[in-house]
Design a protein around this nucleic acid. Structure first.
Lengths: 152, 152
DNA sequence: GATTTTTATATGAAAAGGAATATATTTTTG
DNA sequence: CAAAAATATATTCCTTTTCATATAAAAATC
């Protein structure tokens, strides 16, 4: 059981940690009437001047056609709005609405207290180390789009 | 951009790290004709005497009704089989087949080299620390099903 | 500057996932 | 031991996602 490859496999540990640690908060989100991706959309749009739909998709860890539909839903719900802003008329900039902002505020409180609770088991050092390692993993795979990817 | 709450939010860092780090390997899986959950099923069943469907579901980070359908598919594909083993006749034990084992072996090679590649940027220390922190997060949220959950 | 290529978003059909519940079996309780 | 509660898996219906591709606009090329 403990000697299976997968139990020490980085990708599995990451997925499982994400899954288990998030479960409680994601249940809270549901009670706010938000899906996980919708929460990420609101949190991403909270400041700044809107985001292009494609950028929003990658920020929320979704594919572009999925984000089109998420924004459709959220627009219907009045949480965000599309503005055909820029000079490039293909682009759609998505903005958070006042109603979206209110919804976000509620979820944000839960997010903060949940995170504090999770990290309360760790000291400053370990908390910082954990986040730093995660950030480094993200950076490693974001910056470079390798011409000849190592394993494929 | 860097000062948004979400960019320093543990749950987002975990999800994003998992997503980005896994992307390359998951693409490889697809070329082996495997979905992520299917790969986890095979890797989980690789040793031992089969697993109950429900245990398999949580090992593969899926819900039980989803796992029922995954096992349906994989059984049709000849990768696993259901055996109505135990004394408890409600239980279904899922076993990997020789064909499933062959498919697993191919994916396993990719998994190992991919992980080695990801971790090659880190020393022994950081690699161990990362895995240890992840394991600790998992343990924290697995062991205890708190009677009165902190945030909900 | 017309044609080709690339980029951004949308659409549509099919696959997958999720919540609630059904079914079958076992365990518990009185 | 009969009735009730609990457990394991399956099923149904509905929502969401995915893949491939369409559409529209900009950029690049000749």
């Amino acid at each position: 059981m403990v000697d299976r490859f997968i139990d020490d496999y980085l990708l599995y540990l990451l997925a499982r940690a994400s899954d288990e640690v998030s479960a409680g908060f994601h249940a809270r989100l549901k009670s706010h009437g938000l899906q996980v991706a919708e929460w990420r959309v609101l949190a991403t749009l909270s400041d700044g001047d809107g985001l292009r739909l494609g950028d929003l998709a990658s920020a929320a860890l979704q594919r572009q056609p999925t984000m089109t539909k998420i924004v459709d839903r959220m627009e219907r719900a009045g949480l965000v709005e599309r503005r055909s802003g820029a000079k490039d008329r293909r682009q759609v900039r998505v903005h958070i609405t006042p109603s979206g902002r209110r919804r976000l505020a509620a979820a944000l409180n839960d997010a903060k207290s949940h995170e504090a609770d999770v990290l309360s088991r760790y000291g400053e050092d370990d908390s910082a180390r954990l986040k730093s390692l995660l950030r480094s993993l993200i950076a490693q795979h974001t910056e470079d789009a390798p011409v000849d990817p190592p394993v494929g």
